[in-house]
């Protein structure tokens, strides 16, 4: 919301109290995960474009598919893919946490911190497991 300038008067009104804004608020697990869920959502939207490009390349034939595949196995491609994998699991776990909240469960401060750290831990473990499995499968071919 844009703040409106105070009405013109003889005496300047005392500035209204403002809620602390994001730049001066100490980061907490709750706020960081809230922002992370949104940020990963936006990032995964970009990944979704990549998914369509990838499928379209497969539909177009072996040569276009090979171009995409080369980009994906490159150093930069693997870094991006790793970031997308972690974003996916964070958004998935964070999303499941939100769905639980929608059933009006887990709103106690203690529960919120337990579920929050669980989301962080699960995302890290799932990302590591997915990459270990992927590298193992690719290596055993």
């Amino acid at each position: 919301m844009d703040a409106k300038p105070p009405p013109l008067g003889k005496k300047a009104p005392r500035p209204r109290p403002l809620s602390p804004n994001i730049q001066i608020y100490r980061p907490q697990l709750t706020s960081v995960l809230s922002i992370a869920n949104r940020a990963t959502g936006v990032l995964l939207s970009l990944a979704a474009i990549g998914l369509v490009i990838w499928i379209s390349a497969a539909a177009a034939g072996p040569e276009p598919y090979a171009v995409i595949q080369r980009a994906l196995v490159s150093w930069a491609g693997q870094v991006v893919l790793f970031g997308v994998t972690f974003s996916f699991f964070l958004h998935l776990c964070g999303g499941i946490r939100h769905l639980v909240w929608d059933t009006v469960h887990g709103f106690e401060l203690r529960s919120i911190y337990i579920s929050g750290w669980s989301v962080v831990a699960a995302s890290a473990v799932l990302t590591a497991t997915a990459w270990a499995a992927g590298l193992f499968v690719a290596g055993s071919r």
């Binding site: 598919y65 595949q69 994998t85 998935l92 997915a130 499995a133 992927g134 590298l135 499968v137 690719a138």
Partner: peptide, 17 residues
């Protein structure tokens, strides 16, 4: 759907066209 997709891609890591 996404868990199935990720698992399917992992199962086909390094496979050809």
């Amino acid at each position: 759907l996404t868990v199935w997709f990720v698992a399917s891609i992992i199962a086909r890591a390094g496979s050809d066209y």
